[in-house]
Each structure stands twice: as structure tokens, then as C-alpha cells.
């Protein structure tokens, strides 16, 4: 034990620690404020409707973000359409059906580990498994198998190449563990008495899940899913590996189109030596942050309004 301290020393310690706390906390808020203000300062001047409607250009004053903006929409839509059913299904199985066997413990540990895998490693996986398909359909850029007309909406080719489909599936791998873990937490928060009630009325396990547990957990699942999707919108390293195009003049028109996404466009512009492109990058960041804020706002709204206390 430490030596006994006088009351005044202890009170001073107490006071000093509180000041330290306030200092640390304010530093975090200050960092956020500086970040937002400095980017707004730099990006505000070049942010207008033309910027949102223009394609890529070698001149900063003509360049815009319409192509990466639509690229983000396509990629994130594919990512969400696959990751959400798969993730929610996995979570339901693990929480509601699986007995606590060795297998489920391995699956559980594995999901926690997947959540810790760096996103660029998922990029490598996406490049090999989706863009190249392990070289099973020939290597290089030329397609092994083609279905349909390259201009139509239903064009498909194998391997996928550096397409919106490959990009979306790669992002799906990144957010899948996040969706699973947040859905599991939402399901765990449902009191067991609700399930017991349904089961006591003779419902099967699935009927209990579909009729009682899942509806009660929907706000929690939606909050987690929206946060996972906002992660997907901002993710860029895996798509850099899968191979997004840097200079595109057309928005995607089918699953096999080349793509760029907003964060990669920011990356690309920030890397250029010309200051004009740096301002454009700042403007694109403002757009990106507005989209993300909207997503987070919806998540907060759902959490506050729809989540009724159970019991």
C-alpha cells in the first residue's frame, strides 16, 4: 500500500486528474474541429454543381466526381445486397440455432479474427478470388467466358476482372464480420423470456425467430448494418488492390463495368503534385463526409426513435 496521504494532497490529485481528463477530451474534439474546418476551408471554393456532374479531366477546373460517385453507389449496393443477408443469416444461426459445440466455437473465434484482418488483405483475396478467379478461366485482362452484349445491363464475364461486381464482393468480405457481430449483439439484447413465451405456445424455433426475436431486434440490426455500410462507403484500400480505374469518362452500366469510387478518387487527386487537384480532393471529401453524416444520422435516428425498451 502507498503511504497515507493528507486530505489536501488527495483532493489536489483528484482535481488535477479532472483537469487532465478535460484536457484529453477537449483534444479529441479539437482534432475533429480542425480536421473538418481545414478541409472545408480548402474544398469549399471548388464545390459546385458542375463538380458533382463532371467526369474526369486532366484540367482541375473541368474535373468532377460523377463517375466515382456512381461507382460508389454500384459497389456499395452490391456489397450490401450480399453482405447483409449473409451476415444476418450467420448471426441468426449462431445465436438462435447452433448448439454450443466445438464447431460453433471455432466459427465464433474465426469471425472475431476476420474482423481484425487488415482490409488490404481482403483486397488481395478479392483480386485473386473474384477479379482473377484463381486463373481458372485464363489469366490477364481478356475474359475467359462471356455472356451477353458488353453494352447491355445483363453482360457477364468470367473472371470478373476489375469490375464493380468484383469490387462490391471484395467490400462484402470486409464488412461481413462487422455485420455478423453487430447482429449477434442485437439478438443477444432480446430478453430470453420473449423466446420462451413463443416456444411455450408451441412455436418451432424458426417461428420464434421469425415472429418474435427478429422483429424485436430489427432496430439494432439496422443500426449495425448502416454503420457497416458507412464503413464500406469509406473503404478504399481493398478496391485499390482489386484494381479500380483511375481515369474514367463513363458511369458504370452493368456489373462488369470498370469503376472508381469516391475515396479512391480522393486518394488519386491527393497524390497529384498540382495544388488544383488537392482542392478538388478536399471538395470530394466534403461530399463524402456529407454522405457519411447522412448515414450516421439515420442510424442515430433509428436508435433513438425505433428502439423501444423491452421489459
Amino acid at each position: 500500500m502507498a503511504a497515507a496521504r493528507s486530505a489536501s494532497t488527495r483532493l489536489f490529485q483528484n482535481r488535477a486528474f479532472l483537469w487532465l481528463c478535460l484536457l484529453a477530451t477537449n483534444l479529441a474534439v479539437l482534432a475533429l474541429a480542425i480536421l473538418v474546418v481545414s478541409i472545408l476551408w480548402q474544398g469549399w471554393g471548388t464545390l459546385d454543381w458542375d463538380f458533382l456532374r463532371s467526369t474526369a479531366s486532366r484540367k482541375p477546373e473541368n474535373a468532377g466526381i460523377i463517375v466515382p460517385l456512381w461507382g460508389s453507389v454500384w459497389v456499395c449496393a452490391i456489397c450490401g445486397l450480399v453482405a447483409l443477408p449473409l451476415g444476418v443469416g450467420t448471426a441468426i444461426y449462431l445465436e438462435e440455432f447452433a448448439r454450443r459445440t466445438r464447431f460453433t466455437r471455432i466459427v465464433q473465434t474465426n469471425i472475431l479474427n476476420l474482423a481484425g484482418v487488415p482490409s488490404i488483405v481482403y483486397g488481395i483475396l478479392g483480386l485473386t478470388a473474384f477479379a482473377r478467379m484463381f486463373g481458372a478461366f485464363g489469366s490477364g485482362a481478356d475474359a475467359g467466358i462471356e455472356l451477353g452484349d458488353p453494352e447491355s445491363l445483363f453482360y457477364l464475364r468470367l473472371p470478373f476482372g476489375s469490375s464493380v461486381l468484383a469490387g462490391g464482393l471484395t467490400l462484402m468480405l470486409v464488412i461481413l464480420p462487422i455485420v455478423i457481430i453487430s447482429t449477434q449483439e442485437a439478438l443477444r439484447a432480446i430478453p430470453p423470456s420473449l423466446r420462451a413465451g413463443a416456444l411455450a405456445l408451441g412455436a418451432t424455433t424458426w417461428q420464434t425467430v421469425w415472429g418474435m426475436t427478429l422483429p424485436a431486434a430489427v432496430p439494432g440490426i439496422m443500426t449495425g448494418s448502416i454503420l457497416a455500410m458507412s464503413r464500406a462507403i469509406g473503404e478504399s484500400a481493398p478496391l485499390l488492390v482489386v484494381g479500380s480505374a483511375l481515369f474514367l469518362l463513363a458511369t458504370p452500366n452493368n456489373l462488369m463495368s470498370d469503376f472508381s469510387v469516391l475515396p479512391l478518387q480522393i486518394f488519386n487527386w491527393a497524390q497529384r503534385p498540382q495544388a488544383g487537384f488537392h482542392d478538388l480532393a478536399a471538395s470530394a471529401i466534403v461530399v463524402q463526409l456529407v454522405v457519411l453524416l447522412a448515414f450516421n444520422g439515420v442510424a442515430v435516428f433509428i436508435r433513438q426513435k425505433l428502439q423501444k425498451p423491452l421489459l
Binding site: A28, L32, S38, R231, G234, S236, L264, A270
Partner: peptide
């Protein structure tokens, strides 16, 4: 909320902030 916003900012934005500020 301030911390949640910080957590939601894409990493490429932090990179830009580091490089430019």
C-alpha cells in the same frame, strides 16, 4: 457523437489531412 463521427471518417480523409495540414 463527436467520437462516433471521428470513428466514421474514412481513412483516406485522415491521410489527406496528414499530407495537407
Amino acid at each position: 457523437p463527436a467520437l462516433e463521427i471521428l470513428a466514421g471518417i474514412p481513412t483516406v480523409v485522415y491521410g489527406f489531412f496528414a499530407l495537407m495540414f
